[in-house]
Design a binder for these strands. Structure first.
Lengths: 132, 132
DNA sequence: TTACACAATGTTATAATATAACAAATTATT
DNA sequence: AATAATTTGTTATATTATAACATTGTGTAA
């Protein structure tokens, strides 16, 4: 059997939900929302999430244990991700800045380690929350 | 009462343990190790960890849910952190690179958002693991 | 076209991570 | 000493995530 190059039913259900959401979704919130579609157990959701992250369709916001759809067509795989996170309203935006990604992808320190992946999370107050 | 500017007993116990460790420690591993010192409940550990993170004595490796002592004297508070993580042996090193931190601290995108904090995690294979 | 290999799914149970709520003890200032 | 605030202790529980294994689906090749 070939390696799958399409989405399975569960993956599609989870992806559809995450893509419709304007903010990051938690795994158990996803579970709750897809129960009407037949996904009853956490593992069904986590397995779909794992695969979707692996192929770059969604990203995990590590500091929030939450998931967002990829808004960056360059993210074929999730190996170079950057987000801005509002510490007040928790709004998350994927940063798509070629200078930044170039800078980080080429970054080397004195450890002799070559990085094949990074994740960057910026925190602050979004425009709306700053003006409150 | 003044805001505390020293470590409490529990905080000191937890910090001592984390500082002695060469790799990141998980909260429940910390709990297990400090039980002989009298910290019996998860909350006692989590409260100490929260405070230690807040004042920059330790950092949380978000992708691993683990904690490391700060190796960077500049980290008065944990508002600008970068780590390299080996995906094979899980060795974590704090990156202390002034060009990088300057670049990221001054980073602005078109969202108009001003960031007061960031966390960056690089992934790859460390020297040892690369040569296996 | 059926047997096979393997991927994906379903299911139950449980592990691992983290916080809520509240009572008690400690400590600094009045 | 009275007080106010912080820290601690304690029980219970919420949240996040995975182990283990049985079952079903699907592409490939005999």
């Amino acid at each position: 059997m070939q390696k799958q190059n399409f989405l399975t039913k569960n993956q599609q259900i989870v992806l559809d939900l995450v893509e419709k959401s304007s903010q990051p979704l938690k795994a158990y919130s996803i579970l709750f929302n897809v129960q009407k579609k037949g996904l009853k157990a956490p593992l069904q959701v986590y397995r779909a999430l794992d695969k979707l992250v692996e192929i770059g369709k969604i990203h995990k916001i590590e500091s929030r244990n939450a998931f967002v759809a990829c808004k960056n067509s360059n993210c074929v795989v999730s190996n170079a991700t950057a987000f801005s996170i509002c510490e007040s309203c928790e709004k998350v935006t994927e940063i798509n800045n070629s200078k930044l990604s170039k800078y980080l992808s080429n970054f080397e320190d004195n450890s002799g380690m070559k990085y094949n992946k990074y994740n960057l999370e910026f925190f602050g107050l979004c425009k709306k929350c700053k003006n409150k």
